[in-house]
Design a protein around this nucleic acid. Structure first.
Length: 807
DNA sequence: GAGTTTGAAACT
DNA sequence: CAGTTTCAAACTC
């Protein structure tokens, strides 16, 4: 009894201390001097230490010192929480976890922990506090009534489980077989500590530096970390659980809700819980079939928020993961340098997209691993159940970009259509493609949306609905998630691999495309990156590049200007109409796509990449003004060896060649299919951005894919639809892919092309961005059936479409 | 890696 | 709209 009384007192003190800390934290923030913060914080700490309770606690467990550290985190979390709930939550969660562990160790026997935590928090608030300060909300959200410690414990546990399940469902695809659930508890703890230490500082930096975008990423990362930690800590959890159960029991839903409310928004501690709770709810909703689909985050404070948060979290995670990919090599370093990294995020993402496949889980190093692991998990690469910290390493290549996050992100997007809600993930998007889809993009998106009918992969074509600028992040259903994940995973694995395989052999090791602009500042269509709607990335050799997140305004303005001149400037260059090959000739080559404007080749004979038609893997058409056209994909004169067109016209003279070509193409197509199988699921969707050219069958094996192909590559990604949303052009080139689908129906082409004269047509082919224009229902899912009906695919919707501001 | 070729993009 | 210039990728060596 006496102890309990003391505990209460402690709690009270702690709370007071916590509040004080916040206030201090704020001060600290203002002050900016860590030292001061510490000093200030120290005061309370000393106070606590002096208290008998503190002594008692100390006696109870030797771990004390650690606690202090954790506490710090906790504080951060709280302060952090003030930020967007979503962001906050992850961060918080991480903190919380650490906290939990400590508690567990320290306090198991009794609840006193709490107080100790509170103390620790104060102490810990140091670096982290700065971050939290920003959020004044914490205090508000922070429900004094609830003892954070008590409530938090159990929820966290539950949440962890839920999270795990959720993650499983989400990340299922991503799992790395290697993932080892078995992290040592000790190690995990240690990692946590380190992680926390790292994260704490990071967060502040991020905020200061990049603002939301960065912040979000970090937050997501943190969130990931949390989950990871949880997993890692598994052993601790059990003990904690037992403890926690005592502490937490929501007898009634009300309590739970109250808990959520109090925690979710505000306190970092609970953020995790809140997130978890959200996840749980989300899952529950989904399962139950509650249609939250379009809920705005704001609509329902309770569930709605949770969902939204959840989505955001995923999104964040994805973004973070992306970053990680790029960062790969040195997460730890990254952590340190995060502030600076913000700028690169967008770029990174882009890279990531291309290299998604590369990213795979690895066991996380305690050192840097924490962060990386977090990211990974977030991506869903690791199965939560098994979660282990798996550091994300793409290998030595720092340059390489992996998309762990993307996968997730994409997934989210992909699934969006149904249940999803669109979340504006990108707000921050620095990491993400900055460019919002322009009109063209929208157009595509719409198209895609139609197609996205495929349940598994439904894309969020909804962009049209959404503000183009803001990419919506759809919420996924469980089932959808799984499928989406699957797709993503495949995408990640396959596409990246493919890319590498093909590209590397070709001699292009770099997955990410890069430009080499010297005079255009990467603000003209000369720049492939810009034209594709993506920011230039590190690998780019451009000079005086303005196509970077930091110059987002400039990029958007320029883009807008260009679009004003030519609305289709960023539209896919290649339009494809596809019949459903399904009918019979899947085998036949696809090439039915055409370049929207046609080429103007004089010397290349349309047999080199100089020719956009050729580069795009499509035959020349009437629109072409080329001379001496020998386009292997189809001559201007109509002789085509591929697909339906062939039927239309044929050069008998070239028959032999054609047959050979066809074979090659066909072969390629097949390969692509195999690789891309997902495509089925993969909706061509990149609503936002479409990649221009698409596949180049011929190229694939040989040299590096034509740049243009990159975008087109996206097409493959496009299949994955997700990409489209998530990223515009990033997808690695998987050129051939297109052809597979390409049956051109010239009949249809004209429609598209005629429409504008330039066609926006979607090209299904390879470019990730490609959009299909299809009858209302699209079957992404249908691999063979893609063409079930004639569809016009906008192949390359310009990646940037998104840039155009949404008005 | 440097230089050339090529054709799109941009400009007039 | 046509002609010219600019630009950067593609290509060659």
């Amino acid at each position: 009894m006496g102890e309990e009384g003391e505990k209460k007192e402690r709690e009270t003190e702690v709370r007071g201390g916590g509040e004080e800390e916040e206030g201090k934290g704020k001060e600290v923030v203002v002050m900016d001097t860590p030292d001061r913060t510490r000093n200030q914080i120290n005061t309370p700490i000393s106070k606590f230490e002096e208290s008998p309770v503190f002594s008692f606690l100390n006696n109870l467990s030797p771990i004390k010192p650690v606690k202090s550290v954790h506490i710090t985190q906790t504080l951060n979390a709280l302060s952090f929480a003030s930020l967007p709930s979503v962001f906050t939550s992850p961060h918080v969660s991480s903190l919380k976890e650490s906290r939990f562990l400590r508690r567990h160790q320290l306090l198991d026997p009794s609840k006193p922990e709490f107080s100790s935590d509170g103390e620790n928090k104060t102490d810990g608030s140091e670096g982290i506090t700065q971050v939290s300060h920003n959020s004044s909300e914490q205090q508000e959200n922070f429900d004094p009534g609830n003892s954070l410690g008590e409530v938090s414990v159990e929820p966290s546990y539950e949440s962890s489980q839920l999270e795990v399940e959720f993650v499983k469902s989400l990340t299922y695809d991503c799992h790395s077989p290697n993932s080892s659930p078995k992290t040592n508890c000790a190690a995990s703890n240690k990692s946590r500590s380190e992680f926390d230490a790292d994260t704490g500082p990071l967060v502040p930096f991020s905020q200061a530096g990049s603002g939301k975008g960065l912040f979000a990423n970090e937050a997501s990362m943190e969130g990931m970390c949390q989950s990871n930690h949880r997993d890692a800590v598994g052993c601790d959890w059990e003990s904690l659980i037992s403890d926690a159960t005592d502490l937490l029991n929501f007898d009634s839903p009300k309590d739970a809700d109250a808990f959520k409310k109090s925690l979710c928004p505000a306190t970092g501690f609970y953020t995790n819980n809140a997130i978890d709770m959200q996840n749980m709810q989300l899952l529950g909703c989904i399962e139950q079939g509650e249609g939250n689909d379009t809920e705005n985050p704001s609509t329902q404070p309770g569930e709605g928020n949770c969902l939204t948060k959840f989505v955001e979290t995923q999104d964040m995670v994805a973004s973070s993961s992306l970053n990680n990919d790029c960062m790969e090599g040195s997460l730890s370093q990254k952590m340190d340098s995060e502030p600076a990294s913000n700028l690169y995020r967008g770029m990174r993402r882009r890279c990531l997209v291309f290299e998604m496949a590369g990213a795979r889980k690895k066991h996380l190093d305690e050192n840097s691993g924490s962060v990386s692991s977090i990211l990974l998990q977030s991506d869903g690469n690791t199965p939560t159940a098994d979660k282990q910290l798996v550091p994300f390493r793409t290998g030595n290549d720092s340059s390489r970009c992996i998309l762990p996050g993307i996968g997730l992100h994409l997934n989210a997007l992909a699934t969006a259509p149904k249940d999803l809600k669109v979340v504006k993930q990108d707000a921050s998007v620095p990491g993400r493609l900055v460019i919002t889809p322009g009109s063209a993009a929208n157009f595509q998106s719409v198209m895609v949306g139609q197609e996205s009918s495929d349940p598994s992969l439904a894309l969020t074509s909804t962009e049209s609905d959404m503000d183009p600028v803001e990419n919506g992040v759809p919420l996924m259903e469980d089932t959808n998630q799984a499928s989406a994940l699957m797709v993503i995973e495949e995408f990640n694995q396959n596409s990246p691999k493919k890319k590498r395989r093909r590209l590397e052999p070709a001699g292009e090791p770099e997955a990410c495309k890069r430009c080499n602009c010297k005079k255009s500042k990467c603000l003209k269509l000369y720049c492939e990156c810009f034209a594709a709607g993506v920011y230039c990335v590190e690998p780019c050799s451009c000079q005086e590049c303005f196509n970077k997140p930091i110059h987002e305004d400039t990029v958007l303005a320029t883009r807008k200007q260009i679009e004003s001149r030519n609305p289709l400037a960023f539209a896919p260059k290649v339009i494809r109409s596809s019949d459903s090959l399904t009918e019979d000739d899947s085998s036949q080559t696809p090439a039915s796509a055409r370049h929207k404007r046609g080429c103007n080749c004089k010397k290349s004979g349309c047999l080199k990449k100089y020719c956009e038609c050729y580069q795009g893997g499509v035959g020349c058409s009437i629109n072409c003004r080329c001379e001496g056209c020998k386009n292997a994909f189809g001559r201007k004169d109509g002789s085509m060896f591929m697909g339906t067109e062939v039927e239309l016209e044929e050069d008998e003279t070239d028959a032999p060649e054609k047959s050979a070509r066809d074979r090659n193409l066909h072969k390629t197509a097949i390969q692509n299919d195999v690789e891309l199988q997902n495509p089925e699921s993969a909706p061509p969707a990149t609503p936002l951005r479409i990649i221009r050219p698409s596949v180049h069958l011929p190229f694939s094996s040989k040299k590096k894919p034509p740049r243009s192909s990159l975008p087109s590559i996206g097409s493959s990604s496009g299949l994955y639809a997700i990409q489209g949303l998530a990223k515009p052009n990033f997808l690695p080139p998987q050129p051939k892919f297109d052809k597979h689908f390409q049956k051109v129906q010239e009949e249809e082409l004209p429609q598209i092309l005629q429409g504008d004269g330039s066609p926006i047509g979607g090209i299904k082919s390879a470019s990730p961005n490609s959009k299909r224009i299809s009858p209302p229902h699209c079957n992404f899912g249908m691999s063979p059936g893609r063409r079930s009906s004639r569809k016009l695919i906008l192949q390359s919707i310009p990646a940037f479409p998104s840039l155009t501001p949404k008005h």
